[in-house]
Simulated assay, not measured.
Amino acid sequence: MTAVLPAPRTAQAPSAGGPATGRPARRRRRPVRAILRFTGRWSLRMLVCTAVLSFLGLAVGPHVLDYRTMTMLTGSMAPSIEPGDVVVSTPLSVSDVEVGMVITYHIPIDDHRVVTHRVIEVDRTADGTVSVRTQGDANDAPDPWTAVLTGDTAYQVQAVVPEIGNVITALRNDTLSTLFVQLLPVALGVCMLVSIWRPGREDDDTTTAGGAR
């Protein structure tokens, strides 16, 4: 009887992509790259969305909708409103102004600047004139004037957007303005092109690897 011995197994040749021992390491690295790529892509999208929404809300909204925005420059209303915060004010009938409201108005003296302070006293006359005394929450004394609210509308603070006023002020710097207005759109365009191009490249690599097996 003649015994038939099984043919010895030949060692599998390494693929064109590199030695077989390198494949597990490559597979372990791919999830990390995928996570980083996913995080970077969505971070970029969130940054763009935040910038667009901020622009629409602060620059376009007040001209289209019935509200106003103003950056707080002093700490007179701290801690509820800090310097650099943006206050959002909506219209209110002058006859509805009450003690305790935080309103935005022009002071009746000096440069007639706009301030945002809390109403501490309201005086209504028989002819319908409304005068108010105000005070900043952080100030020890009332404002040294009595303001007559002219017209039919006052503006009451409804919301506070923290710190965004500092960002707006910083963007007015010539260098930063050039960076964000001219260079940032170019960088965003390049990132979008890269994100479109890379998935196709990965598909090609996968097809090549599958054909080599």
Rank of each mutant, 00 (worst) to 15 (best):
V4H: 14
M192V: 10
V132I: 15
C191P: 09
A59N: 04
V60Y: 00
L58F: 01
G151Q: 08
A3D: 11
D66T: 05
T208S: 12
R133N: 06
I35Q: 09
D137L: 09
R29G: 13
D152C: 00
I107A: 11
E121P: 08
E163P: 00
R33N: 06
S54K: 03
L53H: 00
I164D: 01
I164F: 15
P108Q: 02
A11T: 11
I107K: 07
G151N: 03
T104I: 09
L65V: 07
I164N: 06
I35T: 13
S76P: 02
V167G: 03
R29P: 07
G22Y: 03
T2R: 12
S76C: 04
N139W: 01
H112D: 04
V102N: 05
S177H: 11
V48Y: 01
G211N: 14
T74R: 01
T116K: 02
R28I: 08
V86N: 07
T129I: 11
R23I: 06
T169D: 13
A209H: 03
S54I: 05
T71C: 07
V32T: 13
T74K: 02
R27E: 05
A138R: 04
E202D: 15
A147P: 09
S95P: 01
V32W: 15
H106G: 04
D137N: 05
S54Q: 11
L36D: 01
A59W: 02
V88Q: 04
N166S: 08
T2P: 14
T169F: 11
N166H: 13
V132H: 09
V194E: 08
P79V: 01
F180S: 00
A13C: 02
P91H: 04
V60I: 06
H117C: 09
F180H: 03
R23T: 07
S195C: 08
V186E: 10
C191K: 09
T175L: 13
V114S: 15
V194P: 05
